[in-house]
Simulated scan of single mutants.
Amino acid sequence: MTHCPCCQSSDFEPVVSLPNMPVVINALSDDAASARAVPRGDVELVVCRSCGLVYNAVFDDARMAYVPDYENALHHSPSFKVFADGLVSDLVQAHDLYGKRVVEVGCGDGFVLSRFLDAGVGEAIGFDPSMEGRDSPFARPNMRIVPHYFSTDEVDGPIDAVVCRHVLEHLAEPRKLLSDLRRQIGDRDMVVYIEVPNAEWMLQTVSVWDVIYEHVSYWTQPAIEMLLRRTGFQPYRIRQGYSGQFIMVEARPADVDPDYVSNGVDEALRRARSFGSEAALRIADWRTRLKDRCGRAVLWGAGSKGVTFANALGDCGGVVAMVDLNPRKHGRCASGAAIPIVHPDKLSEIQPDLVLVSNGLYEAEIRDRLASLGLAPELWVITGNPGPAQGSVGRA
């Protein structure tokens, strides 16, 4: 990839390398052998000096396939449900979406769509290729999920709001999606809500475990604002949420501003350089901490952070299982690392001495669950600080 996915600049510098990572880290495998045999690829993170976007310069879009075994839902966590309900309620009230039509690009199994309907939206339509051959557990009479990539050809009549959560980071050409959307909106006025992982949180906390092959790009606030303005959207509210781990943008259609340059790029560059120098030390430190310890360890959270941690560290640490609340993951194996994924109740049999918490935001609920099982293992938080699910909110 010779040009920045955001601004098309070829002026970039290296940040960090993670070789031989699973290409689709959120895919589930039936057994250890198939988990070890998954396709792998290199991650060569660079930062664009023009817009502050961090991206994988050797990403190969042809290798990506979001099949039905792909699973990255967060809604099994009580903390995420609180966040999602607050987000939906805020959008519906602020933009008077009662009885109106909402389209979600990259809707997953429809959880957030169902929350919009519960909050008073009249009709919800979602697009997601990973839903091919799957039924949504959140199905409603006035909800429809189209199991392929977004197209307004599938929507008859007006659209009152577009939601696009955690999609742009997966696209080699995010400008194309937003430009197509802007062209199809035309003269209509509507809210467009964009949500992406917050790269600045990742850089500041040195959460190298958030680096996955599936993510082409890691969005800083300057980069996401530049992309939106250059594709014809006016961001008027930019917040951080989920304890700072997400960037949340509300925008409206506007004139394309092809030469727009954001403030804050220099700070993004500074953080990216610091992250690059610290990431290798962070991996080495965790290997040292886990290498000589005795007893059984489990890793709580079989999502991107947990699976990347397991792959980056290899066999050290004696991790015998990964724990997750998502029932679709139980009895399966984590991509690449081939560690079995279990229900929390299985910990009564495993009797772990150590629980590695992949995301500190969930530490309180994990402690409560362990206490309910009569277990009191040591807890080590891999990344992030505990805090309320709503996170900090502020205007740009």
Rank of each mutant, 00 (worst) to 15 (best):
M1Q: 11
M1S: 13
C7W: 12
E13M: 06
P14C: 01
V16L: 05
P22T: 06
A27H: 15
D30T: 10
A33V: 15
A33Q: 13
S34M: 09
S34I: 08
R36L: 08
A37G: 05
P39M: 04
P39G: 06
R40Y: 10
V58C: 04
F59V: 00
D60H: 04
V67Q: 10
L74M: 14
S79W: 02
D90Y: 12
A94C: 07
L97E: 09
Y98K: 13
K100A: 02
K100W: 00
R101M: 03
E104L: 06
G106W: 01
G106A: 04
R115S: 14
F116M: 09
L117C: 06
D118Q: 15
V121S: 05
V121D: 04
G122R: 01
P129T: 00
E132L: 09
D135E: 14
D135M: 10
Y149W: 12
Y149T: 10
T152F: 15
T152Y: 11
E154C: 07
D160K: 08
L171N: 04
R183I: 04
R188A: 06
M190L: 15
I194F: 01
N198K: 05
T205Q: 15
S207C: 15
D210P: 05
I212A: 11
W219S: 12
W219A: 11
W219K: 14
I224Q: 03
I224Y: 03
M226I: 02
L227G: 00
L227M: 01
R229P: 09
F233D: 07
F233K: 06
P235S: 10
R239K: 13
I247H: 09
M248V: 14
A251S: 13
R252Y: 08
D257R: 12
N263W: 08
D266G: 13
A272M: 06
R273A: 14
S274R: 15
A280P: 10
T288Q: 12
G295M: 05
T308F: 09
T308L: 07
N311K: 02
G317C: 05
A321Y: 00
P327A: 11
K329Y: 05
G331R: 02
A334Y: 01
A337I: 01
I339T: 15
D353P: 13
V357G: 02
I366P: 00
L375Q: 12
I382F: 08
S392G: 14
G394S: 14
